[in-house]
């Protein structure tokens, strides 16, 4: 019977999407930090810059999962 292709672990997909989201949110948070949003568009507690540190947290989680569970090339056995 033909051996099935090895499945990419779910953890890699999670790592990849969280990594992308982390990058986007960190970048947005950084922009909000260097140029303050107009008064009418600020959310409550905007001065805490939650987007910046939350984005960094996502980046760290995403990086961990996508590296640890990245698909590896198969080594053919003799």
């Amino acid at each position: 019977m033909e051996e099935r292709e090895k499945q990419i672990p779910i953890w890699f997909f999670i790592g990849a999407i969280v990594l992308i989201y982390g990058a986007l949110i960190t970048a947005t948070g950084f922009l909000g930090w260097v140029s303050l949003p107009p008064a009418g568009t600020r959310v409550a507690l905007w001065e805490l810059h939650a987007d910046l540190w939350w984005g960094l947290l996502l980046l760290a989680i995403g990086l961990f999962y996508s590296l640890k569970y990245r698909p590896r090339r198969k080594h053919r056995n003799a």
Partner: peptide
């Protein structure tokens, strides 16, 4: 709407 700004709101 009260607490999440751009990016976080999308998430």
């Amino acid at each position: 709407g009260k607490y999440l700004g751009p990016g976080l709101l999308g998430l």
